[in-house]
Write a protein that binds this DNA or RNA. Sequence first.
DNA 1: CTTGCTTTAAAACGATCGTTTAATACAATT
DNA 2: AATTGTATTAAACGATCGTTTTAAAGCAAG
Lengths: 226, 226
Amino acid sequence: MPDDAKTRLLQAAGPVFADKGFQAATVREICELAGVNVASINYYFGDKERLYVEAVKEARRIKADRTPFPDWPADVAPETRLRQFVETLLTRLLSADAVPWPTRLMMREILDPGSACKELAQEYFRPEFEMLLGILDEMLPPDTPDYRRRQLGFSVVGQCVFYRLAGGVVSALVDEEELSERYDAEDLANHITRFTLAALGRTPPLGRQPSPPAKLRDIVPQESEN
Amino acid sequence: MPDDAKTRLLQAAGPVFADKGFQAATVREICELAGVNVASINYYFGDKERLYVEAVKEARRIKADRTPFPDWPADVAPETRLRQFVETLLTRLLSADAVPWPTRLMMREILDPGSACKELAQEYFRPEFEMLLGILDEMLPPDTPDYRRRQLGFSVVGQCVFYRLAGGVVSALVDEEELSERYDAEDLANHITRFTLAALGRTPPLGRQPSPPAKLRDIVPQESEN
DNA sequence: CTTGCTTTAAAACGATCGTTTAATACAATT
DNA sequence: AATTGTATTAAACGATCGTTTTAAAGCAAG
């Protein structure tokens, strides 16, 4: 027999908590899904909340194992690394339909920080956020203040997590065929990377260059090449 | 002058639902806060869920009244309008500590679409999203496909809502003084607007200029790469 | 004052929650 | 074989949930 009752319980708890949240999830549903008695939760974990904490920790572990960030060789261009970082993050976030529950559970914990899981979420996100800042650093002027680097990192992350956190709104604002055609991880990674690189000046800007009726700007053509 | 029991109930329900969510909020707490009997909810609204729907609707109404988007005169530059749009959105989102509950309640509904409130949220957000797209349109090339305009709009909105949806993570990743100093609505609006305008080419790019252009990589074969 | 209707009040209902209890089955140790 | 400790079970416990019941209080109109 591969799994004992305790691990079966832990495996069953993750999806249920991810689906319904801590309050709405019931111990009876989890136990039934795990095929164990209702008393087992209290026997193995003490109470429902401790099981929840363990489930969040396991979600973190699973997500870190699956879709790990590549450790690039030192000579990879920052543009490429940014692109891969964004796509990895988006793949994690948008895989909710296929392999959902660890991501969903962690998202719940982010939005509604409960118990002692807030610091846990921090310790999980900080190293990856620092990795992103390291990538951006190579493209920023050396005198960029730290708070501005972080705000820039949040701009990148914010564009990504938006599609998960507010996915309901997105799918309500775009029709279904465009949604299935243009909003997978790869396309969104293309867009976000291009948007970010354009803001950093590593790529031609996305807007129209000439602003003919602009009277507030000088007409002197100081922009000349691209 | 003294509100009747029904409106007192509605006013009390909003903050409680916003704080605890639908499941965790109890009718007894709401009734005690409103100073009415527990049976009043069922008398006036039928059941708890119908009261919740009404609370969400009222939150939407309050939020639309407060902090409305300005209707600009026709000759205002799109840069200015974008800046004001972003700051208005951020002010709504980040006022959670001061005037919190309608925003918080709607955020809950976005993240965890319950009942028939999804379409309601859509009808609330669509016109304002279209307003944003109208602003961006003036700065985009005329041949920009529609799906790309929307993705760009989501990039702007995503940067903004991130600070509310993932505010717990943000406050865990930056120390307290930087948080209170650099993360108010005005500073964030500055950053996001600058970031977006730079991506569109309306503003000098944020990155370091002197560096081998990315295009060279495609032309000249670089040294060993995987 | 009575009538008819709306509103408020207290109490209890049935359901379900998380948790505990007490008894049993099993395996290893003495 | 007896004992010890762990694992598992069915059942019940107490608390709390949303909801319903029942009845009384308020109140305008006849």
